[in-house]
Design a protein around this nucleic acid. Structure first.
Length: 110
DNA sequence: GCCATGACTCCGC
DNA sequence: CGCGGAGCCATGG
């Protein structure tokens, strides 16, 4: 039997993001033991139909929402994040002190 | 098997 | 800080 499908690990990593916090696609991939699969994470979220999946907590490495401005998805993601207390400015998370990537610590206490 | 596509990332300018 | 180019990886025609 397969030892945890990579897909299951990715979804688990996404579900593990605490409410009010965020993580990057690449970060999730790494947490799932799949470095370099950021695009796969994105595709997985796109095809996933689990309404309980906190996909809105996943952002790009620069702390911005991946969806293009004006898109309904982008608006919904921004809305959900704000509902959790995440400060956003022009689609970008302010709390993410990781200027380059949302590397680690995003989940830890500051 | 090659080519195109994408909720990505890194790097140089 | 914005842009363009290259690298990357899985999927589908």
């Amino acid at each position: 039997m397969a030892k945890s499908d990579p897909q299951a690990r990715i979804l688990a990593a996404v579900r593990a993001i605490p409410r009010g916090e965020v993580a990057g696609y690449g970060e999730i991939a790494r947490r799932a033991g799949l470095p370099g699969r950021a695009r796969w994470v994105a595709r997985l979220l796109a095809i996933s139909e689990d309404p309980a999946l906190p996909w809105h907590r996943v952002l790009r490495s620069d702390g911005r929402i991946a969806f293009p401005p004006g898109s309904a998805s982008r608006e919904e993601q921004a809305r959900r994040l704000r509902a959790e207390g995440v400060a956003l400015v022009d689609g970008r998370v302010q709390a993410a002190r990781a200027a380059r990537t949302l590397d680690a610590e995003v989940w830890g206490p500051r």
